[in-house]
Nucleic acid binder design. Structure first.
Lengths: 225, 225
DNA sequence: CTATTTAGTGTAGTTGAGACACTAACAATA
DNA sequence: TATTGTTAGTGTCTCAACTACACTAAATAG
């Protein structure tokens, strides 16, 4: 390890990003945690994230850390809030620009745990103790996710390319933790002109097959209402 | 000036806050700018702000800088977004945690320009060239302000303790840049149970006096709808 | 006392959300 | 091949909220 030092005329805090990566698995809202290999909080669970490189943008840092620690890339990612209370990291002053990210449930396989990282999915309502102020970050990310469900197309980021309306309804129900009326949900989503029948159907089980739909403008998260 | 150096094993960016302070003056949305005394952008206009002290919280830094540069304190202040593109400051890598703030029009007198700072109010739609990426920060703050008008009580932060409903309507009209129907506006605001008549009236001009109202829960910004 | 100016008020029509129950289509199996 | 179980798919009525819209009330100035 180099002994090179980086010196400034005024004190500088460290800057990092942390990422709350949500998905839906097994009809539950889940998020990704990393087991810490080093102190502080060694052996404990924490959000993926890490320190900013001097030539990279904040969002790029978040994406890089996520890929390094889990192998996952090409997620929807948005800046959430910046956490910087003095003392939130016992080592030195760290300003963390928190992001949240969403990934479709058909893309959540993690790379095998390397010596450096062990990552795992946890149900949002059964999280272990988290390192640093990561609990607070998770709460804020969840608030934002729930709020955005209502006025944006963010829910589609959880869906595979093709999906049934029942599956889509399930996403809304799971995140909002409440049951929705099937007819009203379908009326609502169709009135917004966001999805389109593909003409294909999905048969799975001994019952009537469902039409498959796809999102008309994939990749984009739009404000609706 | 001390020659003391602050050294780290990894490079650290500088962290600053910038503040977009809005008010309403002369029926216009205005914001506060500071004339820069030093390079870069010497002599140009910029948002108030400055570097984070190592023992202060981000919001405290924003409040301190605002007070140092303008004498204004006790404003409503909220974190906006963090800007950190490499190269946004030509001197060194600077991560700026932008905030926006609102102040009532009866509290906007600035302290006299000292040798260190010259501050002035500008109409939002007639801004001069701004230093750094401050234009982008201002745009984002404006977006947030317009959005929050609809679903929070943020507009009251612009009002003096007592105000007429016409004055309140004016705030909404100015920020949204559109005329509102008087009867519908009054119905809407009264239905939300946010204001209360004080029993006093304001006479100003040769016409019927208006009732004075006050906000029931001053200081708090609440989510409504 | 007349003119001017802003404050203050109600109703009808439309639109969107919520509550609510049955038929359609398939697969498994009896 | 008839029956059963399971999920897909559909329409109407009610109620609340928003919109459009025009006149009277109360003050001051001249």
């Amino acid at each position: 390890m180099s002994t090179k030092q980086f010196c400034y005329r005024h004190p500088h805090p460290a800057v990092s990003t942390d990422i709350v990566l949500f998905t839906l698995r097994a009809e539950k809202l889940q998020l990704l945690l990393i087991r810490r290999r080093n102190p502080p909080f060694q052996g404990g669970w924490a959000l993926p994230g890490g320190f900013l490189d001097m030539d990279e943008d904040l969002a790029d840092c978040a994406k890089r850390e996520l890929e390094e620690e889990t192998g996952i890339k090409n997620v929807y990612l948005e800046q959430l809030y910046t956490f910087g209370k003095p003392g939130r990291d016992p080592r030195e002053r760290v300003i963390s620009v928190a992001h949240y990210a969403l990934i479709a449930s058909d893309r959540i396989t993690l790379k095998p745990a390397s010596d450096a990282t062990e990552a795992a999915w946890f149900a949002f309502d059964e999280l272990p103790e988290l390192a640093f102020d990561h609990r607070e970050i998770v709460e804020k990310a969840h608030e934002r996710l729930v709020a955005k469900l209502d006025y944006s197309t963010i829910a589609f980021q959880f869906m595979p390319k093709q999906f049934t309306l029942s599956e889509l309804q399930n996403v809304y129900e799971t995140i909002r933790a409440e049951a929705l009326d099937k007819r009203n949900f379908r009326k609502w989503i169709l009135a917004r002109n966001l999805v389109e029948a593909t003409g294909l159907e999905r048969r799975n089980g001994s019952h009537r097959p469902a039409q498959l739909f796809h999102f008309k403008r994939p990749g984009r998260v739009e404000i609706i209402r």
